[in-house]
Design a protein around this nucleic acid. Structure first.
Lengths: 95, 95
DNA sequence: CTTGGGCGCTACTATAATCATAGCACCAGA
DNA sequence: TCTGGTGCTATGATTATAGTAGCGCCCAAG
């Protein structure tokens, strides 16, 4: 259940998703999750680093081996989500 | 990304996880996610119903066929999380 | 009939998380 | 030195969640 708490925080899965494409800098992550606040991004990065899912290096943040494993579990969601979005309609995410 | 927003809300994945074991009543869900507020539970149930992942019937809430599919994707997280918890240590989830 | 208990849910306030914006410190190149 | 980019922190406003109380409904026992 703890993993659901960690991943359940906003943007956490989005960050992992974006990092799966390769290392990214702070501002790059800020750009892809368009509306994220830098303070929140920093919090998430700190939490994910403590959870040893991501790490820093010279070319920015990247997934650890454990983070990669997690992404493999997360990956099928992409295809499923497309299917789901088509069945539901375009504007469910209206918060 | 919309699916990450939906599932990223607190308890959303926990509710799906618990419903995968079979239909459950409102108060039963309140019991298994021990500290959830009824107002929040109701919000999540409403959102998940709008997303057509769960539905109501006489014996309480249950997953739809789409919800079942989603759970199949979610299922491997259980095993992975146990592994992860052992490597990280017991008290990461300390919010 | 009434009354008591469980259930699904709503209302309300307080606390915590998140957003949005501004800006600092650092470094590289011109 | 100055300019621009990057990583990040600080602050106040906004939103979500927690926690508690309680309503209306139904059913069964008295």
């Amino acid at each position: 259940m703890a993993i659901f708490d960690l991943l359940g925080r906003r943007w956490a899965m989005g960050i992992i998703w974006n990092l799966s494409k390769g290392p990214a800098t702070f501002r790059a992550l800020q750009g892809c999750c368009e509306t994220i606040s830098p303070s929140i991004l920093n919090s998430r990065l700190k939490e994910l680093r403590e959870a040893q899912l991501i790490d820093r290096s010279l070319d920015g943040y990247h997934l650890t081996s454990m983070g990669e494993e997690l992404f493999l579990l997360l990956k099928p969601f992409g295809a499923w989500a497309i299917n789901w979005a088509q069945q539901i309609g375009p504007e469910i995410g209206s918060r």
